[in-house]
Simulated scan of single mutants.
Amino acid sequence: MLQNNVLVLVFLPLLATAPHAQPVDESCAPAACGSLTIKYPFWLRGRQPAYCGHPTFAVTCDGATPPSLNDSYLRVLAIHYGNSSVVAFHANLVDNPICVATRFNTSSTLALSLLAVSRANSELYFCKNCSRTPPTGSVAVNCTGLRGSSEWFLSLNRMYDPRGTARWPDEMVGCQYSVVPVMPGSELNTARDYAGLVRSGFLLEWTVPGDCAACDASGGQCRYDAGAMAFRCFCPGGRLQLATCGE
C-alpha cells in the first residue's frame, strides 16, 4: 500500500497579547543570538517585547543549541533577510538514529504559519517494503534488529515539490516512503551521508504583511500591532503609521 508522509506546515496559535497594551516607544534594534542577527519579522522571546516581530517568528535563544523557532522542532541555522528565507533543521530527525528517523511521521510535528518549504530544496526519500527494484541511485540502509524493521533505501530527488503525490517518480510506485526536504545541491553517496544532510537543514521562505524595508528607509522601526493583528511603522514622536513615516 502506497504511503506518503510529507512535511506539512500548519498554524500555531498566535501569542496572546492584549490590544495596545505594549509600550510602542521601546527600541526594537537588531539583536544577536549566537551568529544570527534577529530583526523584524523575527524577535527574541524573553529578551524583546512581542511587538518587535510577528508572533510566528519568535526565536528562543538559550545559547546551548541552535535556537528554536516559535518553540517548535525547528532549529534555526541561518536567516537570509534579503530573500526572506530561513535555513532550519528538524530536531527529531537529527536526534534519532536513521532507522528510527525514517519511520518518523513529519506530517504532524511542525506548526508554523506564513512559512513554506522552498521549491529550491532537494527531497530525501525513505523507501521500504518495495515490491519492485528500488529507485535508481538508492542507497541501502541496514535496520536489522529493530522491531518491525525491514530493508530501507535512501534516494535523493533534485527538486522539492509541495504537490506531493502529484509528481512522485514512477520508480516509487510499489514502495512505502516518506519525504524530507534537504538543502539544494545535497549529495547522497552512502547511508552515512544521512546525518549530514538532515543536520544541514532545508530552506523555508516567509511572506509577511508590510514592507519593513520601506518603513526603515522612512526613518521608522517595524512593529507588529497585536490589536490590529497587522504590520505598523513606528515613527519619531511615537506615531504608529500603516506603512511608512512619510505618510
Results as ranks from 00 to 15, higher is better:
residue 134 P to I: 09
residue 224 Y to R: 11
residue 96 N to H: 09
residue 99 C to V: 00
residue 169 P to C: 00
residue 157 N to K: 11
residue 195 A to P: 02
residue 54 H to Y: 10
residue 232 R to D: 06
residue 174 G to N: 08
residue 48 Q to P: 03
residue 159 M to A: 13
residue 176 Q to S: 10
residue 124 L to E: 09
residue 200 S to E: 14
residue 182 V to Q: 05
residue 187 E to V: 15
residue 41 P to C: 05
residue 128 K to G: 15
residue 240 L to W: 07
residue 128 K to W: 15
residue 12 L to D: 14
residue 35 S to W: 09
residue 84 S to A: 15
residue 230 A to T: 14
residue 155 S to E: 12
residue 30 P to M: 04
residue 104 F to P: 04
residue 132 R to Y: 10
residue 217 A to T: 03
residue 3 Q to L: 12
residue 159 M to D: 03
residue 170 D to G: 04
residue 213 A to L: 11
residue 211 D to S: 15
residue 95 D to N: 11
residue 131 S to V: 15
residue 83 N to V: 14
residue 82 G to D: 15
residue 118 S to Q: 10
residue 13 P to G: 08
residue 232 R to Y: 02
residue 184 P to G: 09
residue 167 R to I: 08
residue 188 L to K: 07
residue 107 S to Q: 09
residue 55 P to F: 01
residue 61 C to H: 01
residue 8 V to E: 06
residue 158 R to A: 05
residue 177 Y to I: 03
residue 155 S to H: 15
residue 157 N to S: 10
residue 194 Y to T: 06
residue 4 N to A: 12
residue 99 C to S: 04
residue 89 F to Q: 04
residue 216 D to R: 13
residue 133 T to D: 14
residue 85 S to I: 09
residue 168 W to V: 13
residue 176 Q to V: 06
residue 1 M to L: 10
residue 167 R to Q: 11
residue 184 P to C: 02
residue 142 N to Q: 10
residue 16 A to I: 13
residue 132 R to K: 15
residue 30 P to C: 08
residue 204 L to T: 09
residue 127 C to D: 14
residue 118 S to I: 04
residue 1 M to N: 11
residue 150 S to G: 14
residue 60 T to S: 14
residue 34 G to S: 07
residue 220 G to C: 07
residue 205 E to P: 02
residue 150 S to D: 15
residue 153 F to C: 06
residue 78 A to V: 06
residue 96 N to M: 05
residue 4 N to V: 08
residue 7 L to S: 02
residue 204 L to E: 12
residue 32 A to G: 14
residue 181 P to E: 02
residue 33 C to I: 01
residue 226 A to I: 01
residue 60 T to L: 01
residue 21 A to T: 11
residue 78 A to R: 11
residue 100 V to E: 12
residue 201 G to P: 11
residue 122 S to G: 13
residue 147 R to Q: 14
residue 129 N to Q: 14
residue 23 P to C: 05
residue 17 T to A: 13
residue 108 S to R: 14
residue 126 F to R: 04
residue 203 L to S: 00
residue 19 P to A: 06
residue 69 L to V: 05
residue 123 E to T: 15
residue 182 V to D: 08
residue 18 A to D: 07
residue 86 V to D: 02
residue 86 V to Y: 05
residue 11 F to Y: 12
residue 67 P to Q: 00
residue 78 A to K: 06
residue 95 D to T: 10
residue 236 P to N: 07
residue 13 P to R: 05
residue 48 Q to H: 04
residue 82 G to K: 13
residue 170 D to W: 09
residue 12 L to M: 12
residue 213 A to Y: 08
residue 233 C to G: 02
residue 113 S to T: 10
residue 23 P to G: 04
residue 89 F to L: 07
residue 208 V to C: 06
residue 187 E to N: 13
residue 162 P to H: 04
